[in-house]
Write a protein that binds this DNA or RNA. Structure first.
Lengths: 171, 171
DNA sequence: ACACCTTCGTTCGAATTTGAACAATAGGAG
DNA sequence: CTCCTATTGTTCAAATTCGAACGAAGGTGT
């Protein structure tokens, strides 16, 4: 049996024009583990949240971001940006959360077009209820598996990656 | 203006029963940057692949994994495991790829129930065509942004995280 | 005031994803 | 061999996702 893990960006034996800089073994390992860890983690968190609180990871994150914002409310576009989601996707989810009574919509005084998504009392309760289990799992599966140094590198490195991507997207 | 980034797992001021170990600032930063980088990266790669090759990231990854496997073929379940996807999701995507002529299905000799997904000649060509652009972007957005040491930490740390998750899932 | 370009949030249709249910088969214990 | 349980891949309905198109306002320069 050949190596267990497959190539993330397999270097097909030949390329018609210019030969790109393929990923070497280390780079490949980094990329692969990033993608895999991300997928596995999402899968687990999704399951845990759904079972314990009836929320999807997306919905949970919406509550978190609102909770962390001043007055527990954010403009739709701003929220979509922070969540890294499409505006239409957010519209859908906020509607769902509204039906559940966890979030409300409020129109913006200074801009008729604007809409604030706002955490309701119930939404706040739900978050308080769901957070412990979620945090515990994140800790068990990621945080506590890594050393303090590894965490620092993660924060720094991926922080820069994110910053770079945000800039690109802004263009 | 409060801190730009919101809490990943906000510590609501009070918890009814036991107080869990919330994430401190560093842990939070690591978790946040991981989630954000992952989302932003997926978004970009998805767009690039779709525009340049007409493939979704999922479809691209299927081709990659098949290409890396002996005889360019894998059992459905095994492939789903490596991709970290549901079996039904894989069934759907393999059907799509089959319609495009990039992948074929072959029944397994030793197990009547088994099905091999197999890379076609066309699929191989498509991969060779799509890979350079994809790799270039992964390099630009992630690999080349990080130092060699950071990459090593990523590979090690997240590799362990993945291994742990795989074990748990196996239960 | 007027055109012009941007931004806002929603709607729409199409594509994708998932878990549960299913029929068929494999594999092991007795 | 026979019963029982686990596995395989698919089907199905439901939920979610996205991008493009929209109508409605903002903001700017003239």
């Amino acid at each position: 049996m050949p190596s267990t893990s497959s190539a993330p960006s397999a270097p097909p034996s030949a390329a018609s024009s210019y030969e790109p800089r393929w990923l070497d073994e280390e780079e490949m390992a980094a990329w692969r583990s990033f993608v895999t860890a991300s997928n596995l983690l999402n899968r687990r968190l999704e399951r845990q949240l759904k079972e314990d609180s009836g929320l999807s990871h997306t919905q949970y994150e919406i509550l978190v971001h609102l909770s962390a914002a001043p007055a527990g409310s954010l403009r739709m576009t701003e929220l979509a940006d922070r969540l890294v989601t499409s505006k239409s996707g957010l519209t859908y989810q906020v509607t769902q959360l509204e039906k559940m009574g966890l979030v409300g919509r409020r129109s913006c005084p200074s801009d008729v077009r604007g809409v604030f998504a706002e955490l309701t009392e119930q939404g706040d309760e739900m978050l308080r209820e769901a957070a412990p289990g979620h945090v515990a799992l994140v800790r068990e599966l990621l945080i506590d598996v890594l050393t303090r140094e590894q965490l620092a590198v993660l924060a720094d490195g991926l922080g820069q990656v994110s910053a770079r991507l945000r800039l690109d997207d802004a263009l």
